[in-house]
Simulated scan of single mutants.
Amino acid sequence: MNLEKLSEKLYAQLLLQVEETANINDAMEKLKSGLALVQKALVQLKLEISKIGFADQQEEIYFFKKGKPQIYAQLILITERYAIENGMPLLGKEKQLAHLESQLSFIDRFFRQNEFLYQYYRMRATDLDERYFIRGGGSQLIGFSEVPEVDPAFSTAADYLFSKFMAYEKLQKILSQEIEMRKGAESGVDTNAVKGLKWTGEAVNMVELVYGVYETGQVNGGKISLSELMDFFGQFFQVNISGYFKRFADIKRRKSMSKTRYLDEMQQLVAKRIEDSDAWIPEDQKGRYGY
């Protein structure tokens, strides 16, 4: 397996493993567990580089431009989220909103301070890749406000900042959603339910449904985490699915012919409605579609 495929495989595994830490109630334990998972993936990548190296320059550029940064970004994201949650005022919605908005302002300042490279990142430019993402390519480059001391065998001039861009864009989205939710609650908008809607089926069916939505990338073009989707569905339909990884493990252990019982039932019932010529049609809809 080459380093590109390995980094993508480790990244996919890491996302699932980090999602599992959402069930840890203690914030410090969650932080430690998340960081340990990222460090393990980074150590494995570093060992592979020392053993097999890169096939060519393009593989090295890919690795330090995307492969390693997307994994390291998880370390930054986990650390930043812990710091934000730990610093959240215990009382006062206005203070809590101000805290979240100050974090957004910090991210905006960071992007402006690194505007040259951030635009390079956003435009997916490639003309300076050999200087930014080849080891030893150069360190005195324009547009850098911070570059920590790094291991020259496992880092380049720009891979750290690309990691921060990835992490901060995700954090920016999370903070914006949190602020929107809190403002909605302040203005009297019920973000947990609409017209008293409540999930009355089994919680495991909700988990099965959300996994289907997640795996098919139906929300935000697939650019949303599994935990975000679970949180939204759980809050909207007022059902506790916080232990969704355990429930999914139960789904995998099912002994029946089909492990996706609920999704199969949905498919069958929708197909029956389509095929049933006697399906009920509301009076006000008759004639509109040729009935």
Rank of each mutant, 00 (worst) to 15 (best):
S155L: 01
Q70L: 13
G53P: 10
E228S: 14
M230H: 09
R109M: 14
F237E: 00
D26V: 06
L141Y: 10
E80F: 06
I174V: 07
N23A: 11
N23S: 15
F162A: 04
L15H: 09
K198V: 13
D284V: 10
L90M: 13
Q17S: 13
L117N: 14
I224L: 08
K246S: 05
K255F: 02
Y132H: 10
S163K: 03
S242G: 11
S155W: 00
Y291E: 11
L10Y: 03
I224C: 11
S176H: 04
K30E: 08
Y291F: 12
P148E: 01
Q39S: 08
Y262A: 15
K66S: 11
Y62Q: 09
L47G: 10
E215I: 07
R247F: 06
Y11S: 14
I134R: 11
T21H: 02
F233Y: 15
E228T: 09
K246P: 00
M28T: 13
Y62S: 07
D56M: 01
V194F: 09
S225K: 03
Q44S: 09
Q74D: 00
D159S: 03
G212T: 04
D151K: 04
Y214C: 00
R253H: 09
S163Q: 07
Q39L: 05
L97D: 01
S187K: 07
K93P: 01
Y132G: 05
E8D: 08
I281L: 15
K170C: 04
E19T: 02
N192R: 11
G188F: 01
E149H: 05
Y291Q: 10
I134A: 06
E283V: 14
E29W: 02
S105W: 03
K183N: 09
Y132A: 08
Y132N: 06
S176C: 00
S242L: 08
G222A: 03
L104F: 00
M166H: 11
K30N: 13
A249I: 00
N205S: 15
L16F: 07
E130T: 11
N240Q: 08
E178D: 14
V239Y: 01
M266R: 12
D151Y: 06
L77G: 03
M28H: 11
G217L: 03
F237T: 08
I71C: 06
K246G: 02
V38A: 02
L117W: 10
Y214N: 08
I107D: 05
A157S: 13
P89N: 05
R254V: 04
L197S: 07
A185K: 12
E8K: 14
A73T: 06
F233C: 08
F233K: 02
D231T: 12
I179T: 00
I71S: 06
V207Q: 14
K272G: 07
E19Q: 05
D56R: 04
M1D: 04
L47K: 14
G34K: 07
A83E: 12
F237L: 12
A27H: 03
G188C: 03
A36W: 07
I49S: 00
D26K: 10
D284S: 10
F106V: 11
L3Y: 02
K40N: 12
E20P: 00
L269A: 12
I71Y: 02
D26M: 01
